[in-house]
């Protein structure tokens, strides 16, 4: 994709703050997923699978924003927002499906609501940058 080479760097300026926060979440989510997968996955396969998915998304988002792969970054962050909203809502409605918490349960309240706020800020940053590029 041409926007991957021609766009302004998404990992500079405020993007550097964003990458740092995403990196911390990627680290935390990966650690959590690894622990759940290796010790107690069969207890609650569904929420723990979501933890693994969330970890992968955070790793991809961190990498894509840091390396200015805007299309992939928007996709990952958009998926993340959808995920946190869907899982957050589901965990409230179908509590029996979520006997164990996942990263996105209750809209990420276990992580200080950061998982809910971060994708909104991320999309703002990524799309604002592209507007500035095309709008001149």
């Amino acid at each position: 994709m041409s926007d991957q080479v021609s766009s302004r760097a998404t990992g500079r300026g405020f993007g550097r703050v964003l990458v740092f926060v995403y990196g911390i979440l990627a680290f935390a989510a990966s650690g959590r997923a690894t622990f759940e997968l290796t010790t107690k996955f069969t207890d609650a396969p569904f929420p723990y699978s979501l933890s693994i998915l969330a970890a992968v998304i955070y790793v991809v988002a961190t990498w894509a924003i840091a390396t200015s792969r805007r299309t992939i970054a928007v996709a990952a962050v958009g998926f993340e927002l959808t995920g946190v909203l869907a899982v957050g809502l589901s965990s409230l409605v179908w509590t029996s499906k979520f006997p164990q918490a996942s990263v996105w349960s209750d809209f990420g309240s276990g992580y200080g609501w950061v998982p809910l706020v971060l994708p909104v800020v991320g999309l703002w940053w990524l799309l604002r940058g592209s507007e500035a590029r095309t709008g001149g």
Binding site: R12, G13, R16, V17, V19, V21
Partner: peptide
């Protein structure tokens, strides 16, 4: 990570850390 950004954003990285 903040050292490459010698402005408010770099300081914000430190604050988050």
């Amino acid at each position: 990570w903040s050292s490459a950004e010698r402005n408010r954003n770099g300081t914000a990285v430190l604050l988050i850390a």
